[in-house]
C-alpha cells in the first residue's frame, strides 16, 4: 500500500520522487511515527492516550525555553522531560488501572494539566529557539555518519528494530500483549497487570516527550499547541497501520507504515492544491474506513 501511494504520487506530481522530496517526507513521517510510539504501546495494552499533545508540548517547550533560552545542556533537558512525562504517564496508568477509570478521561485531563502547567511556567511569553545541536537531527538534508539520511530517520528505523525486539521477543513485551488481549486471563497467570499499565503509560509518555523535543527542533520553535496535529495525525497513523483499538494486535512498524502513507497522501494532496482542511478530512475518513474494516471481525451483534 505504501508503494502504491508513492507510485501514485510520482505519477501525479512532478518531483514527488526526487531526493529532497523523499527526504522531507521521511523526516516528517519519522517525527509523526516517533510521536506515536507511546500511543501505539498504550493502545496495545488496551488504553488510549489523549495526553499526547501535553507530552509533546512539554518536550517542545522545554527544548525551546530551557535549552534555547536558558542554555541548559540537551541531556539535562531530556532527563527533565523524561522525568515529568514519565511521572504524568505513570499517574495516568495507575489511575486508569486501579480506579477502573477510562483512559480516555484520565489522559484528557492530564493533557490539560500539562499544557496548563506549561502556560503557567512560561507565563505564555514568547518562547526561544531550540539550539543547533538538536536541530541537526531533523535537517532534511542532514547526514548520519556521512550517509545522506537525516538522523531522525535513522532514529526511527532504530526504534522500529528496538520496539520489534521488545514487543515480540522480550518477556515484558509478551506481558504487554497479554495484558491488552485479556487482562483477566493475564491476572489469572499472575501477570501484574497494574505494573504493566503504569510502565507502559510512563514509557509511552516519556518517548512522546522526547519526540516533542525533536518536533521543536524541526519547527524551529515551540508553542502550547504544537502537539495537537501530532495527536490526530499520530492516532490516524496507528490505526491506518493496522493496530486496532482494543485488539492487542499490531506493532510500531505498522505505525511507521501508517505514518508514511499519511505523509505521502498529505504531500500529494498539497501538491494537488488542497489545504490543511482537506488533509484533516482525509485523516478522519482514513480512520473511519480502517476502523470499519478492522472492526468487522469483532462485531458482537452477529451473535445477538
Amino acid at each position: 500500500m505504501v508503494l502504491g501511494v508513492f507510485v501514485w504520487g510520482s505519477v501525479q506530481i512532478d518531483g514527488f520522487s526526487s531526493g529532497p522530496s523523499v527526504r522531507a517526507m521521511l523526516v516528517i513521517a519519522s517525527l509523526l511515527a516517533l510521536a506515536s510510539l507511546g500511543q501505539t504501546l498504550v493502545i496495545l495494552v488496551g488504553g488510549l492516550d489523549l495526553a499526547v499533545p501535553g507530552y509533546i508540548t512539554v518536550g517542545a517547550v522545554a527544548t525551546a525555553e530551557l535549552a534555547g533560552t536558558k542554555g541548559w545542556p540537551l541531556w539535562a533537558v531530556a532527563v527533565s522531560v523524561v522525568g515529568v512525562c514519565a511521572f504524568a504517564g505513570g499517574v495516568c496508568g495507575a489511575i486508569c488501572h486501579y480506579l477502573r477509570v477510562q483512559s480516555l478521561v484520565v489522559t484528557l485531563g492530564m493533557s490539560s494539566v500539562l499544557i496548563g502547567g506549561v502556560i503557567v511556567a512560561t507565563k505564555a511569553s514568547n518562547l526561544g529557539v531550540p539550539p543547533q545541536d538538536i536541530s541537526k537531527w531533523t535537517f532534511v538534508m542532514g547526514e548520519t555518519l556521512d550517509v545522506p539520511v537525516p538522523p531522525v530517520v535513522c532514529l526511527a528505523v532504530g526504534v522500529v528494530v528496538g520496539s520489534w525486539l521488545f514487543l515480540a521477543h522480550t518477556p515484558a513485551g509478551r506481558r504487554l500483549y497479554a495484558t491488552g488481549a485479556n487482562p483477566r486471563a493475564a491476572e489469572g497467570i499472575l501477570i501484574r497487570t497494574g505494573r504493566v499499565w503504569i510502565t507502559t503509560f510512563a514509557f509511552g509518555a516519556a518517548a512522546t516527550g522526547l519526540a516533542g523535543m525533536l518536533i521543536a527542533s524541526y519547527s524551529s520553535g515551540a508553542s502550547v499547541t504544537i502537539g495537537d496535529p501530532y495527536f490526530y495525525s499520530g492516532l490516524a497513523a496507528v490505526l491506518v497501520g493496522g493496530t486496532a483499538l482494543g485488539s492487542a494486535r499490531g506493532d510500531f512498524l505498522r505505525t511507521v507504515l501508517g505514518a508514511l502513507i499519511l505523509t505521502a497522501l498529505t504531500t500529494i494532496l498539497s501538491g494537488m492544491g488542497l489545504g490543511e482542511g482537506d488533509s484533516r478530512i482525509l485523516f478522519g475518513l482514513a480512520i473511519i474506513v480502517v476502523v470499519l474494516a478492522y472492526g468487522r471481525d469483532r462485531r458482537l451483534r452477529d451473535r445477538i
Binding site: L165, H169, T170, P171, R174, R175, Y177, A178, G180, A181, N182, R184, A185, A186, G188, I189, L190, I191, S247, A248, R249
Partner: peptide
C-alpha cells in the same frame, strides 16, 4: 474469559507464565 489469549499464538499462550525459563540474554 479467564484462560486464553485469543489474539496470541498457541505457543505464546502456553509459554506466558514461564517466560523466564525460555529467555536467554533478555530475549525469548
Amino acid at each position: 474469559h479467564e484462560g486464553m489469549f485469543e489474539q496470541l499464538a498457541i505457543g505464546e499462550n502456553f509459554g506466558l507464565p514461564r517466560l523466564a525459563q525460555d529467555t536467554v540474554g533478555g530475549l525469548i
